[in-house]
Amino acid sequence: MANEVLKKGGEVASEVSGDTRSFDFEGMRFGVKAWRASASGAREGGSPAVPIVLVHGFAQQASTWDDTAQLLADAGAECFGFKLAGHGAGACSAGGDPAERPGFFDLCFQARALLAFCRIVARDAGVAPVLVGYSMGGRVALQAACLAAGDLRDGDQLNRTALRSSAAFALCDRTRRLDVAGACQRDVAANAARMSAAAPFSALVLESAGTGPVDDAAREALRERNFAWAARVRGEGVSAFMDWWAGLPLFESQQHLPADQQERLRAGRLANDKESLALSFERAGAHAMPSQGESIRALCELAAKGIPVSYLAGELDAKYCKVASTLQTESQGAVSCRVVPAAGHNIHLEQSEAFNAILGEVVESCTPKPAAP
């Protein structure tokens, strides 16, 4: 098993072990699930599709993306499920007791770790991945986008088209192109320099994600709610809390999912530690996000730099349909907002075909075209 270290905002290491991987960032070990691209899905001219980094929701696991990722992998796209801090058994193996290292759960810390992981994927692939975040994962992805937009705002004017066509980003041999621990044959130093100068993702897709509190009063209300939820999970335990959580109106449409899918959802929710879930509420809840105005500004700036931003809401999810409507208006169309029919909060489970079709369009738009002979 090989290791490779990238110095960017702290020490980063990655390991490869079959389809289950681990990613260390400043002392925290994040789980990663990988789905290898199918050789039968190779594109015309041998050009592989842009890779995809998928970030799950609260109390879920990377496996929530299994069906989506497998279909995308069959179509030729390498996929990585990034597991958030404290989610799943052994999730804090690099940090010990989660209560002793609460900073690992901070929204900004997880966003920086996600950006670092995207840089490594981009370095191996030769092109920055499409970043997809669902619900809480969308919150972390949006925070990462705000950080990336801030970096660009501080003086970088690098054009994404030029980045994609750079000789330093020439594609590796297909069998090795996304071996996170492999040593691809190209100018790594030049590659890393270019990646640090731009957002390390080709496009951003937010699924049923909040965009931040509108003002200080809203932020305080969210903080009080999230701390109350944290106290509840600590007091009741995971099983009782998740019975209550699954009954929230937000998840009502999931009652129509096939029984086996509902069972997998519940099993995933129960495979969590109560202290980790509580810390996720307290340290990475919606109250910790940038304001709605800051978030929308950042998304518009990324779109202006040539990084497509999409927002998806389910038709049956009134709360996030309203978020989509506000975002569409406030961004003046810079963010592509879509409402998916017959879907609730979890679009990629409830209407997987529609979700995969939309994501496939995004991937196709970002995938470099083969050079003319």
Rank of each mutant, 00 (worst) to 15 (best):
F58H: 06
T68R: 00
D97H: 01
Y134A: 06
F105R: 02
G86W: 01
H87N: 13
G86C: 08
Q157N: 12
P129R: 03
R101W: 11
K83T: 15
Q61S: 14
S165M: 10
Q143G: 00
F104S: 10
L114W: 00
I52V: 15
C92S: 14
A113G: 15
V130P: 01
L115S: 08
L158H: 08
F82L: 05
A170I: 09
V132Q: 03
T64Q: 08
A49T: 10
K83V: 15
L152E: 12
S38T: 09
G45W: 08
G133M: 05
G126Y: 07
F80Q: 05
R164G: 12
M136F: 02
A75E: 15
H87D: 07
A128C: 13
F109A: 13
L147I: 15
R29C: 11
A94V: 06
F109I: 09
F169W: 10
G133Y: 00
G138D: 05
L171N: 06
G76N: 08
C146S: 13
Y134I: 04
R112Q: 14
W35G: 05
D154P: 00
Q70H: 12
G41T: 08
V127M: 09
D156R: 11
L158V: 14
G126C: 08
G103S: 11
Q143S: 07
F58S: 04
P51H: 04
G76E: 09
D106G: 15
G81D: 07
R164I: 10
A145L: 05
V32N: 02
R119Q: 13
G90W: 07
W65K: 05
G137F: 01
L115T: 09
G57T: 07
A49E: 10
A69E: 05
D97E: 12
V130W: 00
L163H: 07
T64W: 01
A91M: 04
V132K: 02
L84V: 11
C118L: 05
D156W: 05
L131F: 03
L107Y: 06
A111W: 02
L71N: 12
Y134V: 03
T161R: 11
D151G: 11
I120K: 06
S63M: 06
A170D: 13
A148F: 04
A111Q: 04
D154V: 04
V132D: 06
T64Y: 01
V50Q: 03
R123M: 07
A141T: 11
A42D: 11
S40Y: 01
A75Q: 15
G57Y: 01
A113W: 02
R29G: 12
N159S: 15
A59W: 00
A42F: 00
A75R: 15
L115D: 07
D74R: 13
P102I: 09
A168F: 08
E78P: 06
A125S: 14
A148K: 04
A42P: 00
Q70F: 08
F30R: 02
Q110E: 12
D156F: 11
Q60W: 02
P51F: 03
H56V: 09
G27L: 06
D67E: 14
L54I: 11
D106M: 03
V140I: 15
A116G: 13
F30A: 02
A85C: 12
G76C: 09
D66W: 01
F82Y: 13
P102N: 06
M28R: 10
R164Y: 05
V130T: 04
P51K: 03
Q110R: 03
F105I: 08
L158C: 10
V130Y: 01
A168P: 00
D74L: 12
R43A: 14
T64F: 03
F58L: 13
D67V: 14
T161D: 14
A34S: 12
Q110M: 13
